[in-house]
Nucleic acid binder design. Sequence first.
DNA 1: GATGAATGAGTATTCATTCAT
DNA 2: GATGAATGAATACTCATTCAT
Lengths: 223, 223, 223, 223
Amino acid sequence: MPKDTFFNLSGEKRQHILNILLEEFAENDYKNVSVARIVNRAGIAKGSFYQYFEDKKDCYLYLLGLAMQEKMSFLRQSLPPDTTPGVFHTLRWLLKAGVGFEFSNPWLSQISYRAVLDDVPLPEETKALIRSGSMQYFNQLVQKGMKEGDIAPDIDPGVAAFAFNAVFMNLGSYIMERLKIAPSSLLENGQGALTSPKAQTLIDDAIRVLENGLAPRPRAAEE
Amino acid sequence: MPKDTFFNLSGEKRQHILNILLEEFAENDYKNVSVARIVNRAGIAKGSFYQYFEDKKDCYLYLLGLAMQEKMSFLRQSLPPDTTPGVFHTLRWLLKAGVGFEFSNPWLSQISYRAVLDDVPLPEETKALIRSGSMQYFNQLVQKGMKEGDIAPDIDPGVAAFAFNAVFMNLGSYIMERLKIAPSSLLENGQGALTSPKAQTLIDDAIRVLENGLAPRPRAAEE
Amino acid sequence: MPKDTFFNLSGEKRQHILNILLEEFAENDYKNVSVARIVNRAGIAKGSFYQYFEDKKDCYLYLLGLAMQEKMSFLRQSLPPDTTPGVFHTLRWLLKAGVGFEFSNPWLSQISYRAVLDDVPLPEETKALIRSGSMQYFNQLVQKGMKEGDIAPDIDPGVAAFAFNAVFMNLGSYIMERLKIAPSSLLENGQGALTSPKAQTLIDDAIRVLENGLAPRPRAAEE
Amino acid sequence: MPKDTFFNLSGEKRQHILNILLEEFAENDYKNVSVARIVNRAGIAKGSFYQYFEDKKDCYLYLLGLAMQEKMSFLRQSLPPDTTPGVFHTLRWLLKAGVGFEFSNPWLSQISYRAVLDDVPLPEETKALIRSGSMQYFNQLVQKGMKEGDIAPDIDPGVAAFAFNAVFMNLGSYIMERLKIAPSSLLENGQGALTSPKAQTLIDDAIRVLENGLAPRPRAAEE
DNA sequence: GATGAATGAGTATTCATTCAT
DNA sequence: GATGAATGAATACTCATTCAT
């Protein structure tokens, strides 16, 4: 946990530092993040960094916590009431929210992305937890979908969840690349980019693929 | 490019060094790869490393090139004659070959995997190039599929290729995790693990999802 | 010298701070004394420390002066009237008083002890001065002893004073180690430990050694 | 243990570095020894220090080992055959050898001196071992002396050993101060200073004090 | 007079790279 | 061509001291 000194900072200064921290930790491996570079860019003294944070790890864990917490609250806010019928409705909401978060918080996204992939000072279990986080959610979703007849019962449920997850994790990047959106441009206008009709179409198409791929097929034989 | 001195090495010695390089670069971040560790394990002098390679980066780029080239040739070898009908047949071949490569060359796979994810000393464009490498192939495949009527014409072709790619890139890891296969066990028995019926089933299921998701739907309305 | 602000402090608060300072400087090397630890333990602001003292060195010198002054006044108080006959009587008094001081003021003792041994920010001359402090007293004592016939005239007076001093400086530690007295236990019951018969016997034996060693030998030949 | 690289250094360079190390560790607390200062003074690169030594502690332990080993071999060489009669003969030899070592190896002396007094990275047991080293030897000597009738049986043996030790540990410094010998002058001419008649007289006097102080007193009454 | 955040020179240690042998 | 010692800029982190509030 950051020390009180960090939270006591004037909102403006804290935000300034936070922005630099986010950028550094988003753009670099944990190992490659340099405290010296941070303090230089932030225009603060080396010692100040250590008045705000226990150490580099403390700083990182704070940002990671922030990322996960923000993502959770963003998703929760975007999810439809649980009563909505059909897992694909849920999925559509979720996918849009996920991409939405990635667009409006590219740094936080990147930080939580790295938590899974990078060599990061987390107990291996914690990394596993984070990694399996979305998979578990998708597993539940698939179970529900099968019970309700939205998903074909003869598909391995794990593979179905895998497909959900693979699309969920990568669609944001794909859209950004496809629409040639520079990450930097997102900082000023995150949601804007997402709500473009083009982005919406791409998301919808991706969902259609999953929906058709997983929905029970009509009685007729095939292949 | 490695210097001539490296290629002039006796095949045996070069292979010995190569193995150690592959393992080091597969198991560690670029930043965490230690030249000192390499030369120790390889039993060569530090100076020798720099007589073989310009520097660490040169060495890395060589291995990365090797990885991509080997993967290409592995896939090319595994692909059916171009005359095979149906893109999903091609896709099935490809997916199996891709997973097969991952299973029989875990180090090379890991190295090319890291090229996309890690902080690696590549110009951003080069990283983009690698990232889009398979995408381009899938784009062609989708175009062909649409022309031949295997893929629904009302789906965005990019999204279709994206779906192919997302599954292609992650299926290997998923299977390894699902079947609890340790990477180390692959070194001795790569293909073996893949040919297990369980692995085959998972791959087949994944293809079925894509096939159903992308195939043209019968005239009847749905959703 | 501490600033006025320190002496203007309420007696209670000043004593509180003083106790903590004494403990810190007694238990740690000068270099290892941490201003941060001091102000934490004392419950004062870091800035306050610098309002009381010029700097760490100023603080240290104050405590050192205190230690020497207290020791002096303790010894002076314990000494018999100057009229007492026989330097060994004086010495016995002195030795007991010295050990007594060490037992009842372990912190102050330790601080002046460190002044000689530790790497302390004193000009080398000052350290020499402190070191020679007690020596000078013993030199006078020896001169007196020789005049009065208590000390053999054929012994180098400096060596005699040296012997006094060597015993004087180290006897306290020896007794503490011998009787397995923990320094911490002294804080509550300093004099008690000293007045034990065992301690008295050890002190008496040490004096007998010096007395016999320095007293003029009977006319008989020797060695 | 220093690495081979240190021992492979040309004798000249190794000696140069060794001298600087000895001086630094003799003149400063372990904590106050600065690797940066060492490499500056020695004119070598920071990295070189770490090619010679594992770390600062490794370097220190090497010097300490050297000090103890050199002292042992110096003393062993100076001791008379065990058959010499009389503990005071032994003591005379020992004292002269001890002072002799201090004069000819002032840095090594200082380093082993610090091992007992300073905050040094040694397990507490090791420190106790070093500390009790000479005391144990003196305890044996006293026992022997009592058995052979050289030491009065009514003196506490521990106090007798303490007296030996107190003189043994401090006589060298006293003589240096008394004869105004600067430590630096010893480097060029250690033994010379010691063999001066003045120094010899002082040592002899100190022994006479101990001898008379501890020897059994004639039947006549005393005190 | 009290506060505690800000400072920056200082610490030990690492490691890719060079270069004399 | 092979060697491995030498290099020095880089790393995270500490702490006595200052100074604005």
